Simulated scan of single mutants.
Amino acid sequence: MVAAIAEIGGGYLVWQWLRERKKINIGLVGGIILFVYGVIPTLQPSNFGRVYAAYGRIFVVMAIIWGLTIDKKRPDRFEIFGGFIVLIGAFIIFYAPRQ
């Protein structure tokens, strides 16, 4: 969840700088946060692919929550349904028995 908040939050700050014409300091802080986001997955004990599969599900859910809380955009039924599909797929990738 920390990685998702860092990626979405950092990206949001860069978005604010470039798209909403905020000061460059906002973009720089966003860039630093995005760098930290890149480091966070390396702290996980599993292999790279599984870490990103697990992270992907969290990212999708957190992006929908971000839209709801920060952007004040209520998710539609397709975003909710798609989010559930992502959660199921990532669960299979991460927890399927391996030989």
Results as ranks from 00 to 15, higher is better:
residue 85 I to L: 12
residue 15 W to Y: 15
residue 68 L to W: 13
residue 26 I to P: 04
residue 24 I to G: 04
residue 40 I to W: 02
residue 69 T to C: 11
residue 35 F to G: 11
residue 80 I to F: 08
residue 58 I to R: 02
residue 31 G to I: 08
residue 85 I to G: 00
residue 24 I to W: 13
residue 19 R to Q: 13
residue 96 A to E: 05
residue 85 I to R: 00
residue 53 A to I: 00
residue 50 R to I: 14
residue 28 L to Y: 13
residue 93 I to S: 04
residue 39 V to P: 01
residue 35 F to M: 10
residue 5 I to M: 10
residue 54 A to T: 02
residue 90 A to P: 00
residue 91 F to A: 12
residue 2 V to F: 08
residue 9 G to I: 05
residue 34 L to I: 06
residue 75 P to M: 01
residue 46 S to I: 12
residue 47 N to I: 02
residue 3 A to S: 07
residue 92 I to W: 09
residue 32 I to E: 07
residue 41 P to L: 02
residue 6 A to N: 10
residue 20 E to L: 15
residue 42 T to N: 09
residue 67 G to N: 15
residue 65 I to T: 14
residue 99 Q to L: 13
residue 18 L to T: 08
residue 85 I to T: 08
residue 15 W to S: 10
residue 66 W to D: 01
residue 18 L to W: 13
residue 98 R to V: 09
residue 31 G to A: 14
residue 5 I to A: 11
residue 36 V to G: 10
residue 28 L to K: 13
residue 43 L to N: 00
residue 44 Q to E: 12
residue 79 E to F: 01
residue 22 K to Y: 14
residue 53 A to F: 07
residue 93 I to R: 01
residue 1 M to H: 12
residue 24 I to K: 15
residue 33 I to S: 07
residue 91 F to Q: 09
residue 6 A to L: 14
residue 29 V to N: 05
residue 87 L to E: 11
residue 3 A to L: 12
residue 20 E to S: 14
residue 64 I to N: 02
residue 26 I to T: 15
residue 10 G to V: 07
residue 78 F to D: 05
residue 79 E to Y: 01
residue 90 A to F: 02
residue 86 V to Y: 05
residue 72 K to V: 06
residue 61 V to H: 02
residue 15 W to I: 05
residue 70 I to W: 06
residue 20 E to T: 12
residue 98 R to I: 09
residue 30 G to P: 02
residue 10 G to I: 06
residue 45 P to R: 05
residue 63 A to V: 03
residue 20 E to A: 14
residue 32 I to L: 15
residue 7 E to R: 13
residue 96 A to L: 14
residue 5 I to S: 10
residue 57 R to T: 11
residue 80 I to W: 10
residue 6 A to P: 03
residue 86 V to L: 07
residue 12 Y to Q: 09
residue 26 I to H: 13
residue 32 I to K: 04
residue 37 Y to I: 00
residue 53 A to V: 01
residue 99 Q to G: 13
residue 77 R to P: 00
residue 57 R to P: 07
residue 21 R to N: 15
residue 35 F to Q: 04
residue 56 G to H: 07
residue 81 F to A: 12
residue 45 P to F: 05
residue 40 I to E: 00
residue 88 I to W: 07
residue 38 G to N: 09
residue 77 R to Q: 03
residue 13 L to Y: 05
residue 64 I to S: 03
residue 89 G to F: 07
residue 13 L to Q: 09
